[in-house]
Write a protein that binds this DNA or RNA. Structure first.
Lengths: 214, 214
DNA sequence: GTCTATATTATGATAGAC
DNA sequence: GTCTATCATAATATAGAC
């Protein structure tokens, strides 16, 4: 790591951008695009109000930067795993990917909340998001996991299967506060995450239970 | 139906309240609590701005009225079915309830969006919602469906199972705009709803497929 | 019970000093 | 690049006429 405290200008700038994007992801996920105020975002980022229009021009463009950042992190998280899946049989592939996805959703519940907020209306923002991030990700996943075929259920609509996986994986974490109030337990504890993965394997890949905690 | 056009005062009042609650449900679901403006709500309801504070005092109290209304309709939808389930074996019970739930979620995707918005932060609103509506509903369902036992999976955490069911059922409809942009098909068509139910039966009650479209 | 008009506060974005 | 101060608009809620 280079010298601390007073950084070079372009480094400070990059840090401010980074802080704004991370804070904006949280606030967009918590309060939705319309409910997220620029003041709440800059307060959480610990930067001045005017830093936001300086770096991103508008709230809308900040939102796009947040989407790029989040899907980038999602892809990054999986690229190492995916590289190691060459030649692995598709059942094992699915098992490993599902565990990864659950752990990702548990540590980044904001992504699913962000997506549901974007999907609640058919806006230009949503069209941009689908074409730039959702469709490319979907095509990669479909190819990699051969989703419809390996489950042995050709009759299932690929959209239903996709949203069933997303829904079962992400809902406990997207509704974490509700989950905790209802059950008294936090869904993002390691122990509960492992039980969650076991349940999902039982649901989507019967016979694969218990082999997920590597 | 009583006489049309110029109604009696208390009837007009009830109609205004009803229009406000229905409009507010849509707007809260689309834009979240913070993003929902009272102007957007009264515009959609077709009433004057001042009608909102007159009938509900604050946006917060309107939100509670929306929750009461939505969970009331949910319970109502199921009470007829539930009354007919006396003595029916629990597998059949689950099959029928699941189909009902999918059809409900397809025609009322707002309820799931409303819930996820409420769950995105641990607020006083969420606590109120869990204690007044979520927990009572959960206890009724758990009792009725004997959820954990009939699936033959005692090891599953009841919270995981609950949110897995909610997630698989509601996600395609909560993300309907995204689903349509991605697949080119609307998830709320009757044909796709029936395929969705078949998939869910295959997932949660293997062996029960195809018998759901009554 | 419902409306028009308005008080008050909060919002997104900008200007200009540093 | 970042800050303080500020503009123009839009928000929730209220007052008072009808």
């Amino acid at each position: 790591m280079p010298d601390a405290a007073p950084h070079r200008p372009q480094q400070r700038s990059a840090e401010t951008r980074e802080k704004l994007v991370e804070a904006a992801l949280q606030v967009f996920a918590e309060r939705g695009f319309e409910g997220a105020t620029t003041r709440a975002i800059v307060d959480r980022a610990g930067v001045a109000l005017a830093a936001l229009p300086y770096h991103f021009k508008t709230k809308e463009l900040l939102w796009r930067a947040v989407a790029d950042h989040s899907f980038g992190r999602f892809a990054e998280q999986f690229s190492a795993r995916i590289a190691g899946l060459e030649g692995v049989d598709s059942r094992t592939r699915l098992r490993l990917l599902l565990g990864d996805y659950v752990r990702f959703a548990a540590s980044h519940p904001e992504l699913h909340r962000f997506m549901q907020d974007a999907s609640s209306e058919s806006t230009e923002r949503l069209r941009w998001l689908v074409e730039h991030h959702v469709r490319p990700m979907y095509e990669t996943l479909a190819e990699l996991a051969e989703l419809p075929r390996t489950t042995g259920a050709d009759a299932w609509h690929p959209g239903h299967l996709l949203y069933a996986v997303i829904g079962t994986v992400a809902t406990p974490y997207a509704h974490a506060a509700e989950f905790e109030l209802l059950t008294g337990e936090r869904p993002d504890q390691k122990q509960l995450i492992d039980r969650h993965i076991d349940m999902l394997l039982g649901l989507f890949l019967p016979g694969s239970e218990g082999a997920s905690h590597e």
